[in-house]
């Protein structure tokens, strides 16, 4: 496939869709469906003013802190649970149950415990992102290659060296899968935690616009959330590509005859 063809294929439909939206809504007088031109017009003034530092960045900071904490906690607990058969058997049904609780319902409880401040919002994000990371790490640690484990034992590789080079390394493809699932859960929870009793943040602002019937601003918020989701998933893919390049490389090598 030539480069031109690939560019046309990748950009063709999105351009057509946006253009269709633009022209179909151009003369729209429907209150709930303002013209796309109006939405684009209010976008910079809505989000690039003081709102960027007061709402958008704090939201993203909470997401970052909560996500990082969930990753650390999930991987650490996952390694402990995954590497011991007894611990695994004991905790399995409990984890199945805890994972099955839809994370947003924990928001009311965490509001009780931690009030409506930043702590609550970060805790909500941690409580939701933890499970995908934890369960995938457990699976990854459990499926460490026997030959590699025996080799490590034979060479008396123990302690930190063994954890880092054998356990974490072998589990990392699964950990990354868990981290990817956790990221989309995290974005959802970032928004949900701010829709409940908050006084700042991205989710809060969008709800404010909705309640104030500032429909073009509300649409611009929806678009911003969508763009953030896309941007974070692209970032994640870049990081994944770096972290797991050895894995993808070895996979491709073993697939080629």
């Amino acid at each position: 496939m030539t480069v031109l063809r690939r560019v046309v294929l990748a950009l063709g439909l999105p351009v057509v869709l946006v253009a269709a939206w633009w022209f179909a809504s151009a003369g729209s007088t429907d209150f709930y469906f303002p013209p796309l031109a109006t939405i684009v017009e209010v976008f910079p003034e809505t989000w690039f003013g003081s709102r960027l530092t007061d709402d958008v960045l704090p939201s993203l900071a909470r997401l970052g802190i909560g996500y990082a904490a969930a990753l650390l906690l999930g991987v650490a607990l996952g390694i402990v649970i995954g590497s011991n058969r007894w611990v695994r058997a004991t905790t399995e049904p409990l984890l199945e149950f805890l994972r099955a609780i839809p994370p947003p319902v924990l928001v009311p409880i965490l509001i009780l415990v931690a009030g409506i401040g930043d702590t609550m919002k970060v805790l909500v994000i941690v409580s939701g992102c933890l499970w995908p990371v934890l369960l995938n790490t457990v699976e990854g640690v459990r499926s460490v290659d026997d030959v590699l484990a025996d080799t490590c034992r034979t060479y008396r590789i123990r302690g930190r060296l063994r954890w880092w080079h054998l356990v974490v390394r072998s589990a990392s493809p699964q950990i990354v899968t868990g981290a990817r699932q956790a990221l989309s859960v995290g974005i959802i929870l970032m928004v949900i935690s701010e829709m409940f009793a908050a006084n700042s943040g991205l989710g809060y602002s969008v709800i404010q616009f909705k309640d104030g019937f500032q429909i073009p601003q509300m649409w611009s918020g929806v678009i911003l959330l969508g763009l953030l989701g896309v941007l974070l998933s692209v970032l994640f893919r870049l990081v994944e590509h770096r972290v797991l390049s050895w894995y993808h490389g070895s996979r491709t090598a073993s697939e080629e005859p």
Partner: peptide, 20 residues
């Protein structure tokens, strides 16, 4: 490319929209 773009849009972003 369109699917890759639409898929990561968090569904909760649609909450205000469906409510109005």
């Amino acid at each position: 490319s369109t699917i890759e773009f639409l898929r990561p849009i968090p569904s909760v972003a649609l909450i205000p929209l469906v409510v109005v």
